[in-house]
């Protein structure tokens, strides 16, 4: 499973994408739990969402092998 990182999440992890070995987390919630356990600084952000195929994804959403997955820290456009 490959996860694209943006903004402060890229700084926290230290690279622009993260490759997770199998077995990959089955849901958005499991992925976030896994990442927060490995990178505690993610838990200190105001928010950290997961995007699946360019849409914000709820915690119970299942993750598939062909999904485009990204970590979305608090946005600040405008």
């Amino acid at each position: 499973m490959k996860i694209a990182l943006f903004g402060i999440t890229r700084d926290i992890v230290g690279q622009p994408t993260l490759e997770l070995p199998a077995p990959a987390p089955a849901t958005v919630g499991a992925l976030l739990d896994h990442l927060r356990a490995n990178y505690p600084a993610l838990g200190q952000l105001r928010s950290c969402a997961v995007a699946v195929n360019n849409e914000y994804a709820p915690a119970d959403q299942a993750l598939g092998p062909n999904d485009e997955i990204a970590l979305i820290p608090p946005v600040a456009g405008g």
Binding site: I8, I72, A76, G77
Partner: peptide, 12 residues
């Protein structure tokens, strides 16, 4: 503009 600032994936 208000909604853009809440949801559009741009970081500053």
């Amino acid at each position: 503009i208000d909604t853009l600032k809440q949801v559009v994936t741009i970081w500053k």
